[in-house]
């Protein structure tokens, strides 16, 4: 089955990353790189998104499209990237997600 892992950042996580020294940050990125290498056989594609300040939202629900600045939900948790994986079942997807060394929240969504 195919799943998309949505990587979700929290404000706290962004602050912590900011507060790190360059070498600490490098190590954090290295761990993420290792995760991609470990699970490379299951990962079909992946993307890191630019920070939420760059987002633009278009709402079509009231007739004319309304364009606003920012992500569609204003909140402390924002999607910061995704990876599409192909595994046997949800348990295997969970195993991959639980290993994730980056941001603190991962949403797992099966792909139709």
């Amino acid at each position: 089955m195919k799943y998309v892992l949505l990587f979700v950042e929290t404000e706290q996580f962004a602050d912590d990353l900011e507060a790190m020294s360059q070498s600490e940050r490098d190590r954090a990125y290295q761990r993420v790189g290792e995760w991609f290498a470990t699970h490379g056989d299951k990962i079909r594609s992946h993307r890191k998104l630019q920070e939420p300040g760059t987002a633009t939202t278009v709402r079509m629900e009231g007739g004319d499209p309304v364009v606003t600045d920012g992500p569609f939900v204003e909140g402390k948790e924002v999607v910061s990237g995704f990876a599409e994986i192909e595994v046997a079942d949800l348990d295997e997807a969970l195993r991959v997600a639980k290993d994730w060394p980056g941001c603190p929240v991962v949403e797992i969504r099966p792909v139709e």
Partner: peptide, 9 residues
């Protein structure tokens, strides 16, 4: 739909 498996963990 979410692929919850039928097996002993």
């Amino acid at each position: 739909d979410a692929g919850i498996p039928y097996r002993i963990p």
